[in-house]
């Protein structure tokens, strides 16, 4: 609790000077009239406002509403991002798609497909899998020692 300093008495007397400051004569005679006139003009103008302008004016009076909406929207985005990141394809489906692709590459070679694509480098599983990394590991593990690449099978009739 601050004690009243006796020197503040003089300061308080000086501050009383501000009570004697007055606006121009008859200033308040028209003040309320001007306020009401402005309100009436605003009401007349709002009659021509579009629905979104009226909505915006309403939101300006209640800022808590757009803040709450924005927070909820951000929360939904965060939840969606987290949920999407955690989503994975089941392993059984990956293996099944890998087997099907191998069969297509080995027996019923599509003559239009380059042979490299048809070779069993394990890319089939990569091509059909949602996981970009082959199940067998690095892509370079599949290349034969010496850098040999299996020859291209010229299966297309044009190359016979």
């Amino acid at each position: 609790m601050h004690r009243e300093d006796p020197n503040f008495d003089q300061l308080r007397r000086l501050l009383k000077l501000k009570r004697h400051e007055q606006p121009p004569p008859r200033y308040f005679n028209d003040f309320s009239t001007q306020v009401v006139a402005r309100l009436q003009a605003a009401q007349a103008a709002s009659a021509y406002q579009s629905w979104w302008q009226r909505l915006w004016a309403g939101l300006e009076l209640r800022p808590v509403v757009p803040v709450a909406l924005g927070t909820a929207l951000c929360g939904l985005l965060v939840v969606g991002a987290v949920y999407t990141d955690k989503a994975t394809v089941p392993q059984e489906l990956l293996q099944l798609s890998s087997e099907d692709s191998s069969k297509l590459a080995g027996n019923d070679a599509n003559p239009l497909l380059p042979a490299v694509a048809q070779a069993d480098f394990g890319f089939a599983s990569a091509a059909t899998s949602t996981n970009p990394v082959p199940a067998s590991g690095s892509l370079f593990d599949l290349i034969q020692p010496g850098g040999n690449v299996p020859p291209v099978r010229a299966a297309h009739p044009l190359f016979r």
Binding site: R13, K16, H20, E21, Q22, P24
Partner: peptide, 18 residues
């Protein structure tokens, strides 16, 4: 942009004393 002081200011004993 200060307002003028009213007539009573110069007769206020507290202000006159200052």
């Amino acid at each position: 942009s200060l307002n003028d002081l009213d007539f009573n200011a110069e007769h206020d004993p507290d202000l006159v004393a200052l």
